[in-house]
Amino acid sequence: MSVLVLAERDGAQLKPSTYQAMTAAAVWELPIDLLVYGDEVEVAAAEAKQLAGVRRVLTAEAGHFQYPLVEDVQELVLSIASQYTHILSAHSVFGKSVVPGIAARLDIAPITDVIEIQAPSTYVRPAYAGNILTTIENHEPVQIITVRATAFRATVSRTNDQGDDAELISIDVPPAREISQWISEQLTHSERPELNSARVVIAGGRSLGEDFNALLDPIAVQLDAAIGATRACVDAGFAANDLQVGQTGTIIAPELYIAVGISGAMQHLAGIKDSKIIVAINHDPDAPIFKHADYGLVGDLFTVLPELNAALQLNAELQQP
């Protein structure tokens, strides 16, 4: 019995969600193999070898993995799936695309968006936009799971008393299926922290309008925060799609979440309810977000945000030696 964890990369490095998935996989107390795939995997594999709990790092290197396509990753996993009793991935955009196909090909029901694993085969996951938690006992011969990364702490690098680094093994890669092809991508480059792993997130609603970036960027710089947005804000074209926070966007759990001009729709709350501290700024005192906020400020955001930015700047100046 052993566990296969599917790694995800951000360029040459492993994504934070891979570290969190490793923590989830450790609950079973079984040997863990981490699968790293790409066209050049040396840097990511070296990083993976140092993670606590990893028995083996399986590397799959091929030209068609420069831009991994769902069906090709599925074929890779299926080629080694018979060796594992547990297959686990983060509940990321790519994980949500890859894992259901693997489960279908194996004729096994997957359990997705798990927030707690009660080994050996019982799982807790949210339902109805996070309004209830369901406990599921899975009797499938292979446990195929996706986990909500923000529900698990990131694993750490192994220490000296945990033995040598994990074994590095290169595996055969099935040929590309060529069902679809990669054409192009448009990347948004930002010095801000990644949304799903940021310690602080400030998010805005549609009421910010065209001033969305002008109002939020200065505060994000002061707090070293990631920027998020509601679906309505994204649909209106005021914010990029990858900034969307909520049930149909990115689910986050930062230490501090600042909601600006956000009323608090159920779908949005489902994506931020695990935040440690929620601060709400809204002109409507009856906005639902205030029922979930630790701190609330009723006021005109076009006045409050510049004042907040000025206060943060003054505090930064006072902190300087």
Rank of each mutant, 00 (worst) to 15 (best):
S197L: 08
L168S: 11
S197K: 07
S197T: 10
T188E: 12
A203S: 13
P175Q: 02
Q186L: 03
S170M: 11
A198H: 06
G204I: 02
S190R: 14
L168M: 14
S184L: 01
R177F: 05
L208C: 03
L195R: 05
P174E: 05
W182A: 01
S190C: 08
S170K: 14
I202N: 10
V200F: 12
I171K: 12
D211W: 05
I183W: 04
G205L: 05
E210H: 13
E167K: 11
W182R: 01
D211H: 15
Q186T: 09
S170C: 08
G204M: 07
A198T: 02
W182C: 00
F212A: 04
D211F: 09
I171P: 12
A198S: 12
A203Y: 03
I169T: 14
N213W: 14
E178G: 01
A203V: 01
G209D: 03
L215V: 04
G204E: 01
L168W: 15
A214L: 03
E185M: 12
G204A: 05
G209H: 10
S180V: 10
N213I: 05
N196S: 15
I169K: 15
P175H: 03
P193F: 10
S170A: 15
L195I: 01
V201K: 10
G209M: 07
I171S: 08
A198R: 10
L187G: 00
F212R: 10
Q186Y: 01
L168A: 11
I202H: 11
Q186C: 00
G209N: 05
L195Y: 07
A198G: 08
I202R: 12
G205C: 03
W182M: 00
D211E: 15
S197V: 01
V200M: 06
E194I: 02
D211T: 09
L208G: 02
I202C: 09
F212H: 11
I183F: 08
L215N: 06
Q186G: 00
W182L: 00
S197Y: 06
P175E: 02
I179V: 13
S180P: 04
S184K: 09
E185Q: 15
L208M: 11
L168F: 15
L208H: 06
F212E: 02
P175V: 01
R177T: 11
I202G: 07
A166T: 01
W182S: 00
V201E: 02
E178C: 02
D172A: 14
Q181C: 00
V200C: 09
L187K: 15
G209F: 09
D172Q: 14
V200H: 09
S170R: 13
I183L: 14
E191W: 02
R192F: 06
T188N: 13
L187H: 08
G204V: 01
A203R: 07
R206H: 11
R192T: 00
V200Y: 11
R206D: 02
R177C: 07
D172F: 09
E178D: 08
I179N: 14
V200W: 11
P174Q: 06
A203Q: 01
L215P: 03
R199F: 00
